[in-house]
């Protein structure tokens, strides 16, 4: 794969940006020494990159997020440290943008510098199983709104079509046509199709550029399975 210094994940609300951002940062860390992930989500109050902070730091990935994330301070704050992404050219950075055009507004203040450096990828995360983006026209509509709000153009597509834990191989195979249609309509290449790790073997030969992912962003009680009942 070809890696740019900055990778931005944006897309429709609930399309899976945060989970992909975490997975992609872990992937980058295998190739580069210095990796950061920035949570620029000013929309979501729960289920944020901040939930994975300890895990990320244990893998040597630095999390940049508002000091108010996951607290009771309900303000759309951005971290001052986000500027290190632009200033520190030794850094490979993943930017997790909030959903829809409302979330992408936060990019406005960083967009001119990112465009000037011109070493970035901005990836549109799509999920066919989200009810407001079930087809090409609606998804491209959301895409244009985000580009306008962000002041930046997308460079590729990530097909993240999924039904959470219930996703089947058929669901993924059935989403390829949807992604291809969006690719044709937008002129953007499909950079990858994400696949839950347990389904990877069954679809990897049938879908090009499969990217195995884990589900890191999930309900707190679902995370607790492993470590209980020490007796």
């Amino acid at each position: 794969m070809d890696y740019k210094r900055i990778t931005l994940f944006a897309g429709h609300y609930g399309s899976g940006k945060t989970n992909i951002a975490v997975n992609y940062a872990l992937h980058l860390k295998k190739n580069f020494e210095k990796v950061s992930i920035a949570d620029l989500d000013i929309v979501n109050p729960y289920f944020r990159t901040k939930d994975s902070e300890a895990f990320l730091e244990s893998k040597g990935i630095h999390l940049i997020s508002s000091e108010y994330a996951n607290s009771n301070v309900d303000v759309p704050a951005l971290p001052a440290e986000a500027y290190t992404i632009i200033d520190d050219e030794l850094l490979h950075a993943v930017i997790d943008v909030g959903g829809d055009d409302r979330g992408a507004l936060a990019l406005g203040r960083y967009a001119p510098a990112i465009l000037r450096q011109n070493d970035y990828e901005m990836l549109l995360v799509i999920n066919k199983f989200r009810p407001l983006t079930p087809d090409c026209a609606s998804t491209v509509g959301v895409m244009r709104e985000i580009e306008t709000a962000a002041g930046m153009k997308f460079t590729g597509i990530i097909n993240n079509s999924n039904l959470g834990d219930e996703t089947t191989a058929e669901d993924i195979l059935g989403s390829v046509g949807y992604a291809e249609e969006i690719s044709a309509a937008s002129g953007l290449p499909i950079k990858m199709t994400t696949v839950k790790e347990d389904l990877y073997e069954s679809v990897k030969d049938k879908v090009s550029d499969c990217f195995p992912i884990k589900l890191y962003v999930r309900q707190s009680w679902a995370k607790q399975e492993e470590n209980l009942w020490q007796k």
């Binding site: 609300y13 609930g14 999920n127 199983f129 989200r130 009810p131 079930p134 999924n162 039904l163 959470g164 219930e166």
Partner: peptide, 9 residues
């Protein structure tokens, strides 16, 4: 058909 939704939506 199943869709993936937030509780609020």
């Amino acid at each position: 058909e199943k869709v993936l939704m937030k509780g609020n939506e």
